[in-house]
C-alpha cells in the first residue's frame, strides 16, 4: 500500500493546520452514526476534546461524569462488560495518570474493549504547563498487557484511528495533541493498525517518529538531501511492527527516534529494547529528556527543548556523526 501525502505537504505556507483532537472528534461522530453501541463518557472536557461533534448528535449516548476520571474509567468498564463500545475521553494526564490502576484492573485485566481517547499529550499542550503536558502516557499504557496504543501523526490519521479502534478487540489508547499541527495525510491515506508506514526510503539512517514529530522528520529528510534517510511513521506503538523496523535497521545500521514524550518509557526505549534482541544497532531517542518542562506556547517549548525541526535535526546530525 502506497502512502498518500496531502498536496504540497512540505510547504508550510500551504499545508493545512488542525489539531488531532479535532480529527478524532469528527471520527467519533462518524462512528456514532454507523454504530448504535458507541457511547461517549466524558469528564468535563468534552468540547475541548472536540467530542461535541458526537455529543450534540447523540445526547442519549453521552455520559458526563464531571471532573472524575476514575469514575469515568469504571463506568466505561461496566458498559464494555455489557457489550457497549465506550470511548472514555479527557486530557491525557488525568485520563491515564489519575486513573491508572482502575484502567489496569477494570479495563486491561479483563480485556474490556474500551477506547481511551485523549487530548493534551506531550509538551505541545503549551501554556497550561507541566501538569497538563502528558509525557508519560505511552509508558503507562504500553506496559499494560493487551493494550493497543495508537499515536496518530495528524488530524486525518486521528480520525482514521478512532474509526479503526472500534473494530479492534480489548483496550485501546489513542493519544492526540492539543495544538494545531500540519495535516500531511489525506482521508485516502492507508491506515492499518499494527503496521508502520515507510514514508520515504533510504539507506544511511532510519528515522522514526510518531505524532506530529513524523512531519518534522520528513522535513529534515528533505533538507538533508546529501543523506539517504528512511522515514518511518509509527502510529501503532503497541503492538509494534518490529519486523519492518528490524529490516530497516539491518539496512541502515542506525536508528533515530523522535517523539513528544519522555525518552524514558517512550517509543524510542521500546524500539531500543526490541532491536537489542534482534539487530543491535545504535539507537538514539530524542524527546523530552526526563524532565518536567514549563509553561509556554507550543512553539516556544519546541524551540527551547529541542523538539522543533532545527533541534531535532541537530540531534540527528550529532547522532550520525558519532
Amino acid at each position: 500500500m502506497n502512502f498518500i501525502f496531502a498536496d504540497n505537504y512540505l510547504d508550510e505556507t500551504k499545508v493545512k493546520m488542525s489539531p488531532m483532537r479535532e480529527g478524532a472528534g469528527l471520527g467519533l461522530a462518524e462512528l456514532g452514526a454507523l454504530h448504535a453501541d458507541v457511547i461517549v463518557v466524558g469528564a468535563d472536557t468534552l468540547e475541548s476534546c472536540r467530542a461535541h461533534h458526537f455529543t450534540e448528535k447523540f445526547p442519549d449516548r453521552t455520559i458526563q461524569v464531571g471532573v472524575a476520571e476514575q469514575n469515568l474509567i469504571g463506568v466505561c468498564a461496566g458498559l464494555a462488560y455489557e457489550g457497549k463500545v465506550p470511548f472514555g475521553i479527557t486530557y491525557a494526564p488525568f485520563l491515564i495518570g489519575r486513573a491508572w490502576e482502575p484502567i489496569r484492573t477494570t479495563i486491561a485485566y479483563p480485556s474490556n474493549h474500551v477506547i481511551l481517547l485523549a487530548s493534551h499529550a506531550g509538551i505541545a499542550t503549551g501554556t497550561d504547563g507541566p501538569t497538563h503536558q502528558m509525557t508519560e502516557d505511552i509508558a503507562l499504557t504500553a506496559c499494560l498487557p493487551g493494550f493497543t496504543v495508537l499515536a496518530p501523526c495528524d488530524h486525518e490519521q486521528a480520525r482514521l484511528a478512532v474509526k479503526a479502534a472500534y473494530d479492534l478487540k480489548g483496550p485501546v489508547y489513542i493519544r492526540c495533541a492539543r495544538e494545531a499541527t500540519p495535516v500531511f495525510t489525506t482521508p485516502e491515506t492507508p491506515f492499518v493498525v499494527g503496521k508502520v508506514q515507510i514514508l520515504r526510503e533510504g539507506t544511511d539512517a532510519t528515522v522514526i517518529g510518531h505524532g506530529y514529530m513524523t512531519y518534522r522528520l520528513l522535513q529534515i529528510a528533505e533538507e538533508l538531501k546529501e543523506l539517504s534517510i528512511e522515514v518511518i511513521n509509527v502510529h501503532t506503538i503497541k503492538p509494534l511492527d518490529i519486523e519492518t523496523i528490524v529490516a530497516s535497521a539491518k539496512k541502515t545500521g542506525k536508528v533515530f527516534v523522535a517523539e513528544d514524550h519522555n525518552i524514558v518509557g517512550g517509543l524510542g526505549s521500546i524500539i531500543a529494547s526490541a532491536l537489542a534482541e534482534h539487530v543491535p544497532v545504535p539507537v538514539k531517542s530524542h524527546g523530552v529528556y526526563d524532565i518536567f518542562t514549563e509553561s509556554g506556547s507550543a512553539k516556544d517549548l519546541w524551540g527551547k527543548y529541542g523538539l522543533d525541526t532545527e533541534g531535532t535535526k541537530k540531534a540527528l546530525l550529532d547522532f550520525l556523526q558519532k
Partner: peptide, 16 residues
C-alpha cells in the same frame, strides 16, 4: 504569565 521562562506558570509551580 504563561510564557516561556516565566515563574508565573499557567498552573502554580512550587519549585519556581
Amino acid at each position: 504569565f504563561r510564557k516561556i521562562d516565566s515563574r508565573l506558570e499557567g498552573h502554580p509551580a512550587f519549585h519556581r
